[in-house]
Simulated scan of single mutants.
Amino acid sequence: MSAVLITSAGRRVELLNAFRSSAEAIDPAMRILACDLDVEWSAACHMADQAFAVPRANNPDYIPALLDICRRQAVKLLVPTIDTELQALADARDEFAAIGTHVSVGHPDFVRIARDKQETARVLARLGLNTPPSFTPEEVREAPGSVPWPLIAKPNGGSAGRNISVVNDVSQLPDTSGEAFVLQELLKGPEHTINMYFDLGGKARTVIPHRRAQIRAGEVEKGVTERNEALCQAGWRLAEQLPGARGVICFQSILTERGPVVFEINARFGGGYPLAHAAGATFSTWLLQEALGLECEAHDGWTEGMRMMRYDAAVFEES
């Protein structure tokens, strides 16, 4: 009996349910598994058919633990969900493939670029894509008159909106003693996430933007799909010029007066994926089809104007 494994499952119940519905349509006997550092306090783990406790993603025992689960549970598809596990999983793709597990992650070089915001900006600029001017804190201190104030400061390897701040002058630059930061032009305009699906051959099969109407803790809370031609073209162009993407990625863009400006790439499922799923871009189905050797039915015929309004729910269990 084969299975899907969602790693770092946390509270990603919507994602787990998307895979459950996709699996039921393809193979009703397929199990949906989840793992996390703290299974007891993971809502998604409680909703899975079976859950496993694993070390932290940055622990050297993390990959061996996942390989052991995949081997014992006949996992056909492993789906990562957080940035800190992507590089290790990308580097170990062949090890998983050797035991029959397909990992939904891009080429290690692609992941390396996406995990480094400064490098992302350099690569996008080199490819001729519209991206905001980016600076290190040292560059700003040395030449404050040459930067487009105000700036937005972000941890270079951060995610989920952690430690982001607006910087209006040199006195507000972040403390970089603990981690590296990148500073970028503070863009004005509506923010969009553009979800994309790449098949096993690296071909982009769909580009689905949604406007982030309201955000909470770095994740979209209210959003709507929009078939904006400029945003869609930015996605197709990105796919042509930045090789190595596989499976699911998303990128962030601000729709400015000078057009879409791309400022971040995520080499994984975005938090707003359930909106794309509801609009007909069922990435979970397409991943399963490819992992099982079936014909991939990926398409770009998703529904524009699909709205998502999230609310809090709870999982209860007696201790």
Rank of each mutant, 00 (worst) to 15 (best):
G158R: 03
L238V: 09
G218L: 03
V248C: 04
A204H: 06
L275K: 08
Y197N: 02
L231M: 01
S42L: 07
R212M: 10
C45E: 08
G270Y: 15
E24Y: 14
E318F: 14
F96R: 10
V207S: 00
L288Y: 14
A34R: 03
D83F: 09
H210W: 15
P55T: 12
A313Y: 15
F263K: 00
C232S: 03
Y273Q: 05
V182D: 00
V140C: 09
H192P: 02
A90K: 13
N58T: 12
R93M: 11
I82D: 00
G128W: 01
R115W: 04
S21P: 05
R216K: 13
R12M: 04
L187V: 02
K117A: 09
P28W: 08
E95N: 15
L287V: 06
M308Y: 10
E221Y: 07
A53V: 10
T81E: 01
A48E: 01
P28S: 07
S165Q: 08
V315K: 02
M30Q: 08
S42Q: 07
Y197H: 03
V75A: 12
T193Q: 05
A279S: 03
L124R: 05
V4I: 15
A153W: 06
F269L: 13
Y62D: 04
Q50A: 15
P174M: 09
I249T: 13
V262E: 07
V123M: 00
I208F: 05
L242Y: 05
A298F: 08
M47W: 07
G235W: 06
E317G: 06
L288C: 05
V123F: 00
F52G: 02
D38W: 09
Q289K: 08
L294M: 11
V111N: 01
P150I: 09
L231V: 13
A48D: 03
E257T: 14
L292I: 09
L67Y: 07
H277R: 03
P150Q: 06
E85T: 13
D38C: 10
L255K: 11
A279P: 00
V75F: 11
R72N: 10
A180C: 02
T193M: 03
Q87F: 05
K188T: 10
V147K: 01
A90H: 11
E14I: 12
W286S: 00
Q289A: 03
R211M: 11
L275W: 09
E317Q: 08
N228G: 11
A298D: 02
